[in-house]
Computed example of a mutant assay.
Amino acid sequence: MQTFQIICCVLVGMLSLTGARREKPDTPSPDADHYDDGTHNEEYDHEVFLGGEKAAKEFEVLTEEESKRRLTVILKKVDTNSDTFIDKEELTNWVVGSLKKIDNYNAEERLKVQDRNGDGKLTWEEYNLHVFGYMPAKGHDTKSEYGKDVKRAERTFNVADKNQDGFLDSEEYLSFNNPRAVKEMEPIVIEQLLDNMDWNHDGAVALDEFLGDYFNVPGTNQAPAWVAEESELFRTQLDKNGDGYLRSSELFDWVRPDYAATAQFEADHLIKQADANKDGMLTEEEVLNKYRIFAGSRATHFGRHIRDKTFVHEEL
């Protein structure tokens, strides 16, 4: 899954908060995965509408008839007021649910890999054995970059362990695996952002710290175009109180995934593609006429048996 897919290693996710200075701020974009170098990514539409890569791949091997049948079932769930029309709000809400299910599913799969004894919980030792290959000794070096990485991971683990029993259950693991998406993890996310970006240790991120190190356009004294774009973003959207710094919740708001904004972009896109009469809503007929936008199918693969119970959203 390319959209909102949680990274293959939790440590990598935390390093993205705490690594070296960046060449460009990694400001989240609501439609970052929708286009690959300007080319429309059809798989993105399928995955965020159907609820993940697994469901999208199942549709790829269906006949057109079966694909449309399943879409019809889904559309009835999207149309929450049962008026036979799918408006932007209904479609946005559906995609928000899909995005969250994708994150949850990916975290569950990762927990299975890291949970060495298969008890459905993760210990700090299991995490270290999976990521580092061994359990760091107590009193290990915390000044090297490696040592700092271990310390940050342990701090995040302990904050995610809400009941402090030394284990992360499936719900707590969600917070550990993707702390940016969990409100309760805001303090640790802010702490790690400041550790990475607050060069003068004043407890806030100024514009120059936000931009980080960058190189001018080769052969010129001009900054790359993104510098002006990110500077404008900093001043007009991120620095909400206009004091010239990002502090506290402003930092967390910057990096947390905005499911609603992403879903709104996707809803606008899908309606634009399928709304034949341009009334701003979708009917079942309009969706089925453009079913490949929402799901797709490959009739040449007919014969492979797909069980409805494996569909990510619900049984169809």
Rank of each mutant, 00 (worst) to 15 (best):
G219N: 15
S175V: 05
A160Q: 03
T220H: 06
Q222M: 12
N221M: 10
L251Q: 05
I190E: 02
Y245H: 01
N216G: 14
D208Q: 15
D258V: 02
L207N: 12
L211I: 13
W254S: 09
A263F: 02
F210L: 10
S249A: 11
Q222C: 05
A263E: 00
R180M: 09
F234D: 02
A160P: 03
M185C: 01
V159Y: 04
E266S: 07
A261S: 11
M185V: 01
S231F: 03
L194Y: 10
G242R: 07
Q192A: 06
L211W: 13
A228G: 13
A228S: 15
E172S: 11
D195Q: 10
D258K: 06
F215Y: 10
E250R: 12
S249N: 08
V182L: 01
L211T: 14
T220N: 03
R256M: 11
A204F: 04
E229M: 07
N200Q: 12
L168V: 14
D169T: 09
D208T: 15
Q264M: 05
P218E: 14
Y173T: 11
Y259G: 03
R256L: 02
L233F: 15
G166I: 10
G244D: 10
S231D: 08
T262W: 00
A260P: 00
S175F: 07
N163Q: 04
L168F: 10
T220I: 02
A223K: 15
S231K: 14
K240I: 02
E266A: 10
V205A: 07
P187M: 07
G203K: 12
E184S: 14
P257R: 05
T220S: 09
P257F: 06
D161C: 07
R247H: 04
D258T: 08
D165K: 12
F167I: 08
N200W: 06
I188H: 02
D268E: 09
T220Q: 06
L207T: 08
G203W: 08
D202G: 08
P257G: 02
V227L: 04
D169L: 07
V205C: 10
Q164Y: 08
D243Y: 11
I190H: 01
V227M: 06
L238S: 11
R247W: 00
L211M: 14
D202Y: 08
G212S: 14
L168A: 12
G219D: 10
F176S: 10
